[in-house]
């Protein structure tokens, strides 16, 4: 816990990681509104990448492009290229449903299904047929709950509704649910904004552990949080990607004056 609260901006080795997602010239339109303007970004495997920026800057919109969640919004149009493992996810042949199993998502507000804790976690594996029998499914549920650091609290009440958990536990349940489909990338849209400081610290610790297996992309309002959990940081402003680089560099030595204004609290 102690090391959670200070600004950990120590240099971390990120050079030898593989490229996971490459976005080139991405534009997003909501009807007539140009929400994202020509964003290029490279997201590494087994790394936490943070998207920061003032409200309405498009960071959540961009995040939702990465698993094509914007497809569910009628008026939203995405152009440009997004490659996952050098495969274009907006190519006709790609099934967005399959893509979302590979690119999991955790939302701003905990949204457990009105089902038991077990069924919440087993939801994805059941849909995608990841378990051959009950024993395997039990194992997936247990592993996922352990990865989400919820197993100890939940193991005796797996059959109780997930909505009965506290806010922080619900969010960890949602993380377990996302982890259960063995995604390659985990997208988190302000996962702590509805949580109290203790639950936030737990989730942040969890994100750091998840980095060992997944590529994590987190959208956050809190610059302290970005500094604490991420290795790479992208700063968005008015739909543009202003600056992208090592977290330590962005926070200590920003190249763009707008980044500097934001992290020192002058805009936002």
């Amino acid at each position: 816990m102690d090391d959670m609260n200070d600004m950990r901006m120590v240099e971390r080795a990120v050079d030898d990681k593989d490229l996971k997602i490459t976005a080139k010239g991405v534009d997003v339109f909501y009807g007539d509104t140009h929400a994202i303007k020509g964003v290029d970004v490279e997201i590494l495997d087994k790394t936490v990448t943070a998207f920061i920026g003032p409200s309405g800057c498009g960071k959540s919109t961009f995040l939702r492009c990465l698993n094509r969640m914007n497809d569910t919004i009628d008026i939203c149009r995405v152009t440009g290229q997004i490659l996952l493992d050098s495969e274009d996810i907006y190519h006709q042949k790609v099934d967005p449903v399959q893509l979302r199993a590979k690119v999991g998502m955790v939302f701003q507000k905990p949204n457990p299904f009105p089902k038991s804790i077990y069924d919440n976690v087993a939801y994805g594996p059941r849909i995608h047929g990841l378990a051959r029998n009950k024993a395997e499914l039990d194992e997936i549920v247990e592993t996922s709950l352990r990865r989400a650091a919820l197993w100890e609290e939940a193991k005796d009440r797996l059959d109780q509704p997930g909505t009965g958990l506290s806010g922080g536990q619900q969010q960890r349940l949602c993380i377990a649910r996302a982890v259960a489909t063995s995604p390659e990338v985990l997208l988190m849209d302000e996962p702590c904004s509805a949580l109290d400081p203790i639950a936030t610290a737990q989730v942040e610790e969890l994100i750091d552990e998840l980095r060992a297996r997944f590529s994590v992309v987190i959208v956050t309002h809190s610059m302290q949080q970005a500094a604490r959990v991420s290795q790479k940081t992208a700063f968005f402003h008015l739909g543009e990607l202003v600056e992208f680089g090592e977290t330590s560099q962005i926070f200590t030595n920003p190249k763009d004056p707008r980044t500097e204004s934001y992290i020192t609290g002058r805009i936002g």
């Binding site: 569910t72 449903v97 979302r100 590979k102 939801y123 994805g124």
Partner: peptide, 18 residues
């Protein structure tokens, strides 16, 4: 039914009918 539940399900790779 809250939209967040739909998002949660789509986000896990469920189809509309699922």
């Amino acid at each position: 039914v809250p939209q967040s539940l739909r998002d949660g399900s789509y986000g896990l790779g469920a189809t509309q009918s699922e």
